[in-house]
Simulated assay, not measured.
Amino acid sequence: MRFLHPGGSIVHLAYCTNVHSAEDLPGIHAQLSGFCARVRSLLGVPRLGVGLWLPAGAARALLDDPQELVRLRAALDSHGLEVVTLNGFPYRGFQQEVVKHRVYSPDWSSPERLRYTLDLAAILAALLPDDVTEGSISTLPLAWRTEGAPTALLKPLVEGLREVRSRTGRTIRVAFEPEPGCIIETTAQAAELLPRDELLGVCLDACHLAVGFEGLDFGDLPIVKLQASCALETPPGAQRALGAYDEARFLHQTRCASGYADDLGEALARLPYGERWRTHFHMPLHAAPPPPLTTTAGYLGELLRTVLAAPLTRHIEVETYTWSVLPEPDVTGGIAAELDWMRRELAVLGLKEL
């Protein structure tokens, strides 16, 4: 979906397909013809943006056989779909029964991560619509917290992105996504650790930033992409209501004014119940959980107003990947409702749907 910003630029809205389980190309094609096509139909739009997640094996298969890349581009066109951004954070197995810390492996200390990201850059350059010259790839915030920051591979990353631009005429930018518990937790740490280069920047995940209680002054930090997401918020004394959300698949970092825990079970065991908690559990944008729990939708609205004032980015991706572990999942209908909520929010900010 495309929107005309009052300043004249085009803002792209997509939803991320990492919510769907697929590890190979037949699975990717099934997503497009199934989930993505149905979401587009529910929204009643001629063209739907999708933020593709391509596991490493599927990405390599696309480059090993150029005809597979041609077929993927044709499938996107035939279903009324377009791709300007990829989610390159998970490497593989994102919808396995247990993901947790595995999502950070391989990290940016590994040549595998570099190769995967440059594979995605080459693929995205081929998938971009004919009238779009710039794409984005979001990636992990270097690594889960370790001794030191693995930044040595960022120089060859930039060199590889420049080679893609020289060869294809398309500019692909990589966005590092701050997340609690990682080497880059905050945008301030991103500004400190990332080299300043036009091809690198950050992906602002609204859920992650809300869990960190982060302010909205990003200085001159390049914002390549914004992920529209809401965290789970718990008012003081209501923590027992979190029991339905303490699940085994994903990591749910939790923070309050006086403490932090790497996962929700740990938080329930030791953080003070008398404070407001925010939990890294991506909640639907359009609907609040049963009370007394709420979400950080208000923070997302403030973030959208801040980032889209200029705009500071032209790529927005709805990323609620937790439908499979929500108490009452409705994946297709829920995704369509989230995108409808987003386009109404963008309209309020003065953007016109094209």
Rank of each mutant, 00 (worst) to 15 (best):
F3Y: 10
L4S: 10
P6F: 13
P6R: 12
G7K: 14
S9W: 01
H12F: 12
Y15N: 02
Y15W: 10
C16H: 03
C16K: 02
N18K: 13
H20L: 13
E23P: 05
P26W: 10
G27E: 14
G27V: 12
I28T: 15
H29I: 06
A30E: 13
L32V: 04
S33W: 10
C36D: 15
C36W: 08
G51K: 03
L54N: 07
A56E: 13
A56S: 15
A58G: 00
A61I: 00
D65N: 04
L69S: 12
L69K: 10
L69H: 13
V70G: 04
R71K: 14
L76E: 09
D77H: 14
H79N: 13
G88F: 05
F89M: 15
Y91K: 00
Q95H: 14
V99W: 13
V103Y: 06
S105M: 08
P106W: 11
W108N: 09
W108Y: 07
S110E: 14
P111G: 11
E112R: 09
R113C: 04
R113P: 02
L114M: 05
Y116Q: 09
I123E: 10
L124Y: 11
L127C: 15
P129E: 08
D131G: 00
S136W: 05
W144C: 00
R145F: 09
A149V: 05
A152R: 11
L154Y: 05
K155G: 07
E159D: 14
E159R: 06
L161W: 06
E163M: 15
T171E: 14
I172G: 06
R173L: 06
E177G: 02
P178K: 04
E179W: 02
P180A: 12
P180C: 13
C182W: 05
T186G: 05
T187H: 10
T187D: 01
A191P: 09
L200D: 07
A206T: 15
A210F: 01
A210R: 02
G212D: 08
G219W: 01
L226V: 14
L226W: 07
E233V: 07
P235M: 02
Q239S: 11
Y245A: 04
D246S: 05
E247M: 01
L251D: 09
Q253T: 11
R255E: 03
Y260A: 08
L268N: 12
E275T: 07
W277H: 01
P284M: 11
L285T: 02
A288V: 01
L293T: 04
G298P: 00
G298W: 08
R305D: 09
L308C: 06
H315F: 08
I316R: 02
Y321G: 03
Y321M: 06
W323I: 00
V325E: 15
E328W: 06
V331I: 13
T332H: 07
M342Q: 09
M342A: 15
M342D: 04
R343I: 13
E345R: 04
V348E: 15
L349I: 11
